[in-house]
């Protein structure tokens, strides 16, 4: 697999490794996807007073707990990066698995939160606020779940101490997912 890697991949005329460069471009393309959705949300939120009434029904404590979970998993990801830089693959793998566990916990909490809200009649079609709520948080949750899968794959290779540079790359992505939630949390939960 690695013998088929072209020479092009090993060059770094821009002064940084190819993988890191590409991950930043991925993040650039993600910024505009989330940015477009959140800009639309903010416009509606400011224009319609009904949004504030509906937003009052979201549960700040669950949102805050999930923020805590994601921030902690980010800490684990960056510790994995540090371990990988020190060449300690198995230690990096353990931290990555903890990161993935954080992501899964986030998804489970979200599942319970949504179940509760749907039982109270707040479904995606209830009003435009709830449509945005489920769409934005759902798009973010999809990123979390995709991240968990990639984290576990990278952890498996890091355990054997191969391709350790990947640890940093998945970390950058994971922190980005964290940053998106840092903005979603006040937008959907706090500002009432």
């Amino acid at each position: 697999m690695s013998s088929g890697r072209p020479i092009a991949t090993t060059r770094s005329a821009a002064g940084m490794p190819t993988g890191r460069l590409a991950v930043w471009w991925v993040i650039a393309s993600e910024i505009v996807i989330f940015g477009g959705l959140l800009a639309s949300y903010v416009m509606y939120r400011l224009a319609h007073d009904a949004f504030a009434e509906q937003a009052a029904h979201t549960n700040t404590w669950i949102g805050a707990f999930n923020t805590f979970v994601l921030l902690t998993s980010s800490l684990m990801a960056v510790q994995a990066h540090k371990a990988a830089d020190e060449g300690d693959g198995p230690r990096a793998a353990r931290f990555l698995q903890l990161t993935a566990a954080g992501g899964l916990l986030f998804a489970v909490v979200k599942a319970f939160e949504w179940t509760d809200e749907i039982r109270h009649g707040f479904t995606i079609t209830s009003s435009t606020f709830w449509s945005f709520y489920y769409t934005a948080a759902g798009l973010h949750a999809a990123h979390v779940l995709a991240g968990v899968v990639i984290l576990l794959i990278v952890a498996a290779s890091a355990k054997r101490s191969v391709e350790l540079h990947r640890v940093e790359l998945i970390g950058i992505y994971w922190h980005f997912v964290d940053v998106v939630w840092i903005f979603l949390f006040p937008l959907l939960y706090i500002a009432k």
């Binding site: 319609h48 009904a50 009434e53 509906q54 029904h57 109270h120 009649g121 707040f122 209830s126 009003s127 435009t128």
Partner: peptide, 11 residues
């Protein structure tokens, strides 16, 4: 539409 029927009270 802004005040959905099923979403009153009980929260």
């Amino acid at each position: 539409a802004a005040h959905p029927a099923g979403a009153h009270g009980a929260h």
